[in-house]
Design a protein around this nucleic acid. Sequence first.
DNA 1: TTTCATAAATTGGTTTACCAGATTAGAAGT
DNA 2: ACTTCTAATCTGGTAAACCAATTTATGAAA
Lengths: 234, 234
Amino acid sequence: MKVGVLSKNDNEEIHNKIIVQITELINLKNLEPGDKLPSERMLSEKLEVSRSAVREAINKLEFYGILKSIPQSGTFVADIGVTAMNGMIDYILGLEDPDFKSLVETRILLELKIVKLASLRRTDEDLVNIKAALDAFEEKVLNGENAVQEDLLFHLAIANTCGNSTLNGFMLKITPEIITNFKKYHVCGDELSVVAIQEHKAIYEAIKNQETQKARQIMKVHFKTLYQYCYNIE
Amino acid sequence: MKVGVLSKNDNEEIHNKIIVQITELINLKNLEPGDKLPSERMLSEKLEVSRSAVREAINKLEFYGILKSIPQSGTFVADIGVTAMNGMIDYILGLEDPDFKSLVETRILLELKIVKLASLRRTDEDLVNIKAALDAFEEKVLNGENAVQEDLLFHLAIANTCGNSTLNGFMLKITPEIITNFKKYHVCGDELSVVAIQEHKAIYEAIKNQETQKARQIMKVHFKTLYQYCYNIE
DNA sequence: TTTCATAAATTGGTTTACCAGATTAGAAGT
DNA sequence: ACTTCTAATCTGGTAAACCAATTTATGAAA
């Protein structure tokens, strides 16, 4: 089953159907950016579905920046143009659920950039946060406990200091899926955690000293095991 | 105003407040992964807000993989652990709206990876799609019309063939914001479009011939102007 | 005591009714 | 004809009522 990034349940199918119908309507009526859609009531009547279903479809299109609802006024076609809209909707409907490989591949890409930016832009306050996450991770590992959560919180702490809210948001989006997949495929890596402590410390130091390339290099080494694992799955 | 990735309206403030309260409740009750939250009715009563408000807060937490609602059963703490949950929620609530620089910075990062993957994984069918987007762009430019939409659809066509649904989804998420910012800051770049045609063609050929490094190199050149613009804004 | 069928209660989801702000139509005044 | 003001209408959002599936409680049978 295909499902979007918003992934909820199997009712997604009917949402997609409604999205297609709304799109067709926009094209039929030659609505331009800024134009108002028929009201939710009209749409639900015309498409013979409940208003809530229409609202959910609109929500999804709004999430992807294609529509814009304004409280007591109406729902409008965002000013990205109808060509972009039609193209995007095709791709949105075709979006598949991310598999583990996609997630890891993306995570590594994001984090190698994030650690560079973080080392350039980190404030002193940021360093305190990262250090706290680092200490929490170390304590857990030295206690012999599973520290997957603390591991990823350390990485999120870095993402939070990179000064790029888009990258930060993307990291937050994929982290839970990464964790659950770690558990699913038993990539918890308890045995590697002691090594990981040293690597985390080295990353922290590099960020602290603003050694951009070094920070990136250590992060790359840090991901080596994960990287190999990722490309051995397929 | 701070706002999350889901960015809707100013009522986000109260959603965040509810999210905090729900989190506190989970901690108070020492709920572990897999445990069931109080029902939506109980929560709305206890927190003295409407049930719909509770539902929206839960939806957001579900989007970020922290909670999981099961239809006639209940809402459960996802199995990422309470430590990860608490850390993530702090970061989620602190998320700011992405600025243009964040978007461009992220786009370039994503696309340089995407074009590599696409050149490795593209099918013959993919090539047809990319070529169609390429032709549409060329026609628009040669007609002297603004071709921002067709430009980005070409890039989305590539993203759609990269075999990584996470990266593809992220590209879809930022594209509309990129377009609106282009218009806002007048980065439409009509004068550059003729050059862009050649670059697009070269990218297409490289993907077609599966010349991975070359594809990436051309994409990098293609982004040069945008890159400079991005780092001159601040 | 255990097992299993049955009914009552609980759940998230959905439909319906209602709300307050925004828009529009039209009349009144100039 | 053109404003201006007002009231009726229309809008997305929200609260309340309802639903079907699930879970739990109950108790009879073994």
